[in-house]
Write a protein that binds this DNA or RNA. Structure first.
Length: 578
DNA sequence: GCCGTTTTCGGCCCGACTGTTTTCAGTCG
């Protein structure tokens, strides 16, 4: 069984939890958590690297001990420390730490005093009124915990970004109408464009916080008010999503926005830089002694620590601070840089609109070209095209292009990559297209080796231009298939093939980390909507957000090229494989 | 457990809110 970075990260997270439950050194706990986070963003496969006999590069926050543990876990799947810690704690107790309101101290008390170590046991104890007798617990916390554990036993805790936006934007609008409110920004992971968000963080600038807070807790969709003070409040909406509101005066807005946008790791790193300069950074500003020296804008906060402003999407403490210091921050791609879209469907298969309607909608979104890429025959559910129907569509598109103004339709296909890496349509018809995107829609459960081989073989096919949604994951619903992404990127580079960043909110595939790997590997990424109807183009903003999280610049994105240049690149790919 | 223009030991980001407390610990972000 190959050990992935995520597996090592999970072991480190568990060690951190277990150490915390033993009241271990909090900085030691943090070292394990930092290592787990670092592994999440790492663009090399630790186990594979070690298996090839190569040394690990020096990684920030990883010293002799942690790097030895990484080797141990890569080789064995576990590590001695975790096993020892597990022996000293009841099975499953780390689950309790996931329940809001419970931290290590309270979990310890629950276990020692009541022998409670699972959410189910906690539920019973709270229901039976056994918590209130414990030191540090009372009737109120018992009630809160009962609600929290019931919610926990219920459902998923993270929301896809596009879904969160549906809750966030109307609420932000509602707050803008409050007395004295100058600005409202949805901060947190939402602003960083993470693919999912756990809760919403809304920041308001107002001299007097009272009306904004009142309006917030009285919002029609609020189901429960969790906390409400003079500068902040937390609620749960009917949909189950938690929203935190923070109100600050305008002169603190930049500092508060920085603080409330996170990530936590990025904030800690920035505050450390401040500390080294004798500055204290908090949500009210940057202070030298009692004197505020910055904080009205985010730019001023960064300037105070000698850095240019860093885009929210980069704030993960994954090298952005070092890049800022060197003046090497990427100039991130923007939605307006997109010249076209290379993946869309029409009524001919599983889309809902005609070719003309799709073309006009794309043009209205400011795009100059749109590739029509229907499914191929193998995808029977979607009435995939066979060579005859595809030939008809090619004729249709050629006719339509003579009538359309301001937008060009490209003739394409989303052809299935079969189990052996061959394509679902013959070269004779693929040769007539402007571009061919290849996708895996079946046999997701092949071994890592065979799945990788399948994609590598597909890239050997002369007409394949782009690999669509390369890992096949559906966020929260289906895991990515097991794949050696580095090998795929190397092959793509060698063959002149491009990789898609599918912008559909359920896919966002490539991930941010994979985008960065593609960039490192010199492979252009195509940010595509996969639109099945006129609204589908709206998803491009999420694709761009993910690309920005992956450090992509305009020059790294295939469909930021004007049409003539795009055609040259697609042509070059064919010549190379001819 | 990590790390060094305060350094190889002694630090490690910072503040709000809650509930239980009898002056503050625990949790959260």
């Amino acid at each position: 069984m190959p050990v992935h970075n995520a597996d090592i990260a999970r072991v480190f997270e568990e060690i951190a939890d277990l150490l915390e439950l033993e009241s271990g050194n909090p900085f030691r706990v943090r070292a394990y958590r930092n290592a787990a986070r670092l592994l999440g963003g790492l663009r090399l496969d630790v186990a594979a690297q070690l298996a090839e006999g190569k040394a690990l590069p020096k990684l920030p926050g990883i010293g002799d001990d942690l790097s030895a543990k990484m080797r141990e876990i890569a080789a064995s799947g576990t590590c001695k420390l975790r096993e020892q810690l597990r022996k000293r704690a009841p099975a499953g107790i780390t689950e309790l730490l996931r329940i809001p309101g419970l931290g290590p101290k309270k979990v310890q008390a629950l276990y020692r005093e009541l022998d409670v170590h699972t959410p189910q046991q906690l539920h019973r104890a709270a229901r039976d009124g056994r918590l209130r007798g414990l030191h540090g617990f009372g009737a109120k916390s018992e009630k809160k915990l009962l609600e929290a554990v019931q919610a926990q036993l219920g459902k998923a805790r993270r929301y896809k970004l596009a879904l969160a936006a549906q809750y966030a934007e109307p609420l932000a609008e509602h707050l803008r109408a409050a007395c004295g409110v100058e600005r409202v920004v949805v901060a947190g992971s939402f602003r960083r464009m993470r693919e999912t968000v756990g809760d919403l963080d809304i920041l308001v600038a107002a001299e007097d916080s009272r009306d904004a807070l009142r309006r917030f807790t009285a919002y029609g969709e609020v189901k429960r008010v969790l906390a409400s003070g003079t500068t902040r409040a937390s609620v749960v909406l009917a949909s189950g999503i938690q929203v935190d509101l923070r109100v600050v005066p305008a002169q603190s807005f930049g500092a508060a926005l920085h603080y409330f946008t996170g990530s936590k790791a990025h904030n800690i790193a920035i505050r450390k830089l401040g500390q080294a300069r004798g500055l204290k950074i908090n949500e009210y500003g940057v202070f030298k002694g009692k004197r505020r020296v910055a904080g009205e804008t985010e730019t001023s906060v960064y300037a105070a620590v000698g850095l240019p402003e860093i885009a929210p999407e980069l704030r993960e403490d994954q090298g952005e601070i070092e890049a800022a210091r060197r003046g090497a921050l990427p100039r991130l791609v923007e939605r307006s840089d997109l010249q076209g879209d290379l993946h869309a469907h029409s009524k001919a298969t599983d889309g809902r609109n005609t070719l003309r309607e799709m073309a006009e909608a794309a043009r209205a979104q400011g795009l100059c070209y749109l590739a029509i890429t229907e499914h191929s025959r193998r995808v029977t559910m979607a009435h995939g095209l066979d060579p005859q129907r595809l030939a008809q569509q090619i004729d249709q598109i050629e006719r339509l292009n003579r009538e359309l103004r301001g937008i060009t339709l490209l003739k394409g296909i989303e052809v299935d990559i079969l189990e052996d890496g061959t394509l679902d349509l013959p070269n004779s018809i693929l040769a007539r297209l402007d571009l061919v995107i290849g996708a895996v829609h079946s046999k997701f459960d092949l071994s890592r080796a065979r799945q990788t081989e399948r994609l590598l073989a597909a890239m050997e096919q002369p007409y394949l231009s782009i690999v669509a949604h390369p890992t096949g994951r559906l966020i929260g619903a289906r895991e990515a298939y097991d794949l050696d992404m580095l090998a795929v990127i190397r092959k793509a580079h060698a063959k002149g093939v491009f990789l898609e960043l599918n912008a559909h909110p359920e896919r966002l595939d490539l991930s941010d980390v994979h985008c960065r790997m593609a960039k490192d590997g010199g492979v252009l990424v195509s940010i595509d909507s996969d639109a099945h109807d006129l609204d589908g183009f709206g998803n491009l903003v999420y694709g761009v957000g993910q690309a920005r999280r992956g450090w992509l610049e305009k020059k790294d994105v295939l469909n930021c090229r004007p049409l003539a240049e795009l055609k040259k690149l697609l042509g070059a790919r064919r010549e190379r494989s001819a």
